[in-house]
Write a protein that binds this DNA or RNA. Structure first.
Length: 273
DNA sequence: ACTGGCTCCTGAGGGC
DNA sequence: TGCCCTCAGGAGCCAG
């Protein structure tokens, strides 16, 4: 599952190969995603230059003079750079063919991804307008999180996974950040002190930055090499149920919260806030 | 205003 | 070896 760090490493990887290039052709192979890929992008993107590629949460925005292509990789989506037309495989949905014949290809087996187009400001697009700040920006502070969490009874884990609060924190990094901050995932969000909120925000930024650094160092994104890296190598709790906590040795627990699994150390992560 | 549950989809993995 | 069942999960949407 591409989480925010994977999306950011994808952005950095494709940047030198896609930004500044002009789209010669758009090919929609399988339009069916979470929403169908709109046909209008074929004409809208043709002959447009990709001026900037920006990330907001887990969304990637490809800006052109005519409008913006909005990408979300969903659960299983990834982008590949191909030096020339390579034979298509199952679940290849979409190609951006640049004037120099390089191809940016979108692959997504579970079809949870999303490709949208907007002629106007993408931040006013209905998918993005209600979204909270990106966690790596200066708008995401302890004070902000403290203010948003007042009177909220929801558990802190689903709270920080709510895109309206903060954009793009998925299950893996929610678990990892809560471990790093020493907060039990079931703690009601409204019970967190201002200090705990500050610590949680710092933990979120830290685990995300570390994953981005690791991924950037590990992944060499170049034509004909497919992007497929998920940075699970240094996880402290995620999918480690039954294994000893790296901090205290107590066995990591797994509980079901809503529709998601939460992993945590019952000794290092407390509800006394 | 909040909260929890449903839904889309397919590959992986476990059990037998 | 192979079949079948269950599960995982981002996030928008909807009902209570």
């Amino acid at each position: 599952m591409p989480e925010l760090p994977e999306v950011e490493v994808t952005r950095r990887g494709i940047l030198p190969h896609a930004q500044g290039k002009t789209v010669a052709k758009v090919k929609i192979h399988h339009p069916k995603l979470r929403l169908p890929i709109p046909n209008k992008i074929i004409t809208r993107l043709q002959n447009q230059k990709i001026s900037r590629i920006v990330r907001v949460g887990k969304y990637l925005l490809f800006h052109t003079a005519a409008g913006t292509l909005i990408f979300h990789l969903g659960m299983t989506g990834y982008l590949s750079l191909l030096s020339k037309t390579k034979s298509r495989e199952k679940h290849d949905h979409f190609d951006l063919v640049f004037q120099d014949n390089t191809v940016l290809r979108y692959h997504d087996s579970r079809k949870f991804g999303l490709i949208r187009w907007t002629d106007t400001d993408p931040l006013r697009h209905h998918l993005l307008k209600a979204i909270g700040p990106d966690p790596l920006t200066n708008q995401f502070t302890g004070k902000y999180l403290y203010g948003k969490s007042r009177n909220r009874k929801i558990a802190v884990k689903p709270f920080i996974m709510d895109a309206k609060i903060v954009a793009g924190i998925g299950n893996i990094y929610a678990c990892e950040a809560l471990f790093a901050a020493g907060i039990h995932p079931a703690t009601p969000a409204g019970k967190l002190s201002e200090k705990k909120c500050a610590g949680l925000v710092q933990a979120i930024k830290k685990v995300l930055r570390k994953a981005i650094e690791t991924g950037t160092a590990v992944m060499v994104f170049q034509p004909d090499r497919e992007w497929s890296g998920y940075f699970l190598q240094n996880r402290a709790v995620y999918q480690r149920a039954g294994a000893p906590c790296k901090n205290c040795g107590v066995l990591i627990e797994k509980i079901r919260m809503g529709q998601r699994s939460a992993f945590f150390c019952g000794k290092c992560q407390r509800q006394n806030v």
